[in-house]
Design a protein around this nucleic acid. Structure first.
Lengths: 115, 115
DNA sequence: TATAGTACTTTCCTAAAGGAAAGTGAAGTA
DNA sequence: TACTTCACTTTCCTTTAGGAAAGTACTATA
């Protein structure tokens, strides 16, 4: 009787997790969503609210997030010209994920420092 | 009266999120945790359960996860020598996060394909 | 004409991540 | 002695992410 190699199948979980990671990947996207979510809507305000982010990186990540329909860029035609960034409604679906990331981070820091 | 620049403060959320991302960062760590979690405990089984991962990358990520106390490496001294990878209890704390990643991915795929 | 404000862009560079393919070492088995 | 299995390691290379510093474009106002 042929022995069949069994390794547990977990693609049902891995595949959607990968889909998510493809969207919110990297150091900056979730922080940007958080920042815009609490009300920072201007380029420079977003930049100042996220320590360490450079304008180059911010501009690139904002474009990515726009393409993924997580936020939109609104041109306000006054003097001086302003741009407002707003979360799309779809970004609200990320709320549970963001809380999970936050909660785990808080707990992890507690664990690491209490030694 | 001096105008003070107000930009909404969101560091309380951004900081722990960053701590989390520092640990589970990248394409592979969460998939590996999932795979080991469902019972794949041998190097080659883990490798086969995660499409596209190379042995070099798997070895490196396993070391990282060990350092972060998320899994342990157990040497089984038989012939041929086997290594068993097991999740630490601490890895269980990631469960809510993994579900959040999975659920969002499922929903996102639905959204993207139904157009 | 010069200046100020806003929102970027450009250039240059380093570091980290990732991929392909082949190789290694240890030990038991034929 | 050669072969097999398992768990990696090594080498080489390409791609992506990220950072620092300076520059640009537009327009209104002084």
């Amino acid at each position: 009787m042929a022995q069949k190699k069994i390794h547990c199948d977990c693609l049902d979980t891995i595949k959607p997790v990968r889909d998510t990671l493809d969207v919110i990947n990297g150091k900056w996207k979730v922080p940007i969503i958080i920042s815009v979510g609490v009300g920072n809507d201007r380029f420079t305000d977003i930049q100042e609210s996220i320590p360490g982010i450079s304008p180059k990186v911010l501009a690139k990540e904002l474009k990515d997030l726009e393409q993924h329909k997580l936020l939109r860029r609104i041109i306000i035609d006054e003097y001086p010209v302003k741009i407002s960034y707003q979360l799309e409604e779809y970004a609200d679906t990320l709320t549970p994920l963001i809380y999970a990331l936050k909660d785990w981070g808080i707990n992890h820091r507690k664990k690491v420092t209490e030694k």
